[in-house]
Design a protein around this nucleic acid. Structure first.
Lengths: 199, 199
DNA sequence: TGTACATCAGTGAACGCGCGTTCACTGATGTAC
DNA sequence: TGTACATCAGTGAACGCGCGTTCACTGATGTAC
């Protein structure tokens, strides 16, 4: 049974990621404490550092997981038969509901300090790329004459716009409102996105 | 000269606010340290607490100032004769340029912890109200049949959308791009905001 | 199968650092007479 | 104007706390023979 130790290592890793996720979901990134994690999974503080380089590695692991779930939620929100504008709205609503259901995990996605040396990790770019591809397709249908660069910018613009509406909508500060209102705001903007208008 | 002491108090307050602003502009909210401030204005650490309850009060003061400047920049960006869509774009660009010129002060605006008891301070609501009024007017021209509630939501939606585009655009993470590209993204979205479209 | 040894997971007290805030003290400023 | 006193701005060393991370030690697991 050469694997008994290795198995335990893996189990500890998973347990720690689970615990970190729960911790972040409950109190946000800043609520993640080594001592709490150790208590929650029933190991010593030192054991964490046998399995992770530091807490930050743990946070990245949680964020990777969150991003995958978010991508899955968005992908599952449409079936591809909808007209493009409707599809954009469906995806945006999926984004909104995910963010509303897991506000702190979602926030953590944008608050994690990315490693400063070898830039943004691979899983991040992959997940982001997948998300953007989902948005780009209907925009391509909507604007068949747009060239690739413009479409790329438009994709980022649409994502950012929806993100902004969800972000400020979920905060109490600027315009904290019920999710239903946020849904309306998204629809207000997206359902008015048409061909370019003069003036 | 009953005022000599009082004058010094005021001068110290102002110097501290100036120093805090410089500190935040240079390194973000988290770079604000009591020791640095004291060194910068040439007073002792304790003197800060003679004039402010705590560092947080100082941060609020800086944020109030930033918000005023931001509002002034947006207000100055149009003269009211432009067609509404063009005016929205002018204001958005002013917002973008302010954020790009003072990214950390601007970020601090959204990151300051608001007092938990008596909610958001008065200056914040006033500044925000003024900003929203600027946006609401052209939207009202654009959608004369919209009722007040819908116009309110639309105002928040437009602000949030532009905010999102600027926010993610200025970050290196999701879609860090030169300001010129961000300008294009804003225009792409805003110049397509028209009447509601079927489907 | 049994024994001796090596490895490394596991432990948690202790280290180290950053940093906001306090507090006992001092001396300049202002007031009373 | 001069003197005695009170106030309070100003000082900076020290407190206190949180918290990530280390490290010397232990004991279970796996390996060699």
């Amino acid at each position: 049974m050469a694997g008994k130790v290795a198995e335990r290592r893996v189990a500890l890793r998973v347990a720690l990621i689970d615990a970190a996720e729960a911790e972040i979901e409950a109190g946000g990134l800043s609520a993640l404490k080594a001592r709490d994690l150790a208590k929650q999974v029933g190991c010593s503080i030192g054991a964490i550092y046998n399995v992770f380089d530091d807490l930050h590695g743990l946070v990245l692991e949680v964020s990777g997981r969150t991003f995958k779930k978010l991508g899955a939620a968005v992908s599952a929100s449409y079936d591809g038969t909808e007209p493009p504008r409707a599809r954009l709205i469906l995806m945006s609503n999926a984004y909104l509901y995910f963010a509303a259901a897991h506000p702190r995990l979602w926030r953590a996605l944008f608050d994690v300090q990315m490693p400063t040396d070898g830039p943004v990790p691979e899983w991040y770019l992959t997940s982001l790329g997948r998300l953007f591809a989902n948005i780009r397709a209907p925009l391509g249908e909507l604007y068949p004459d747009m060239d690739d660069d413009a479409l790329g910018l438009m994709t980022r613009a649409m994502f950012s716009a929806v993100h902004g509406i969800v972000l400020l909508g979920l905060e109490n500060r600027v315009s904290g409102v019920p999710a239903e209102h946020i849904r309306v705001m998204i629809a207000q903007v997206l359902s008015r996105i048409g061909p370019e208008l003069p003036e």
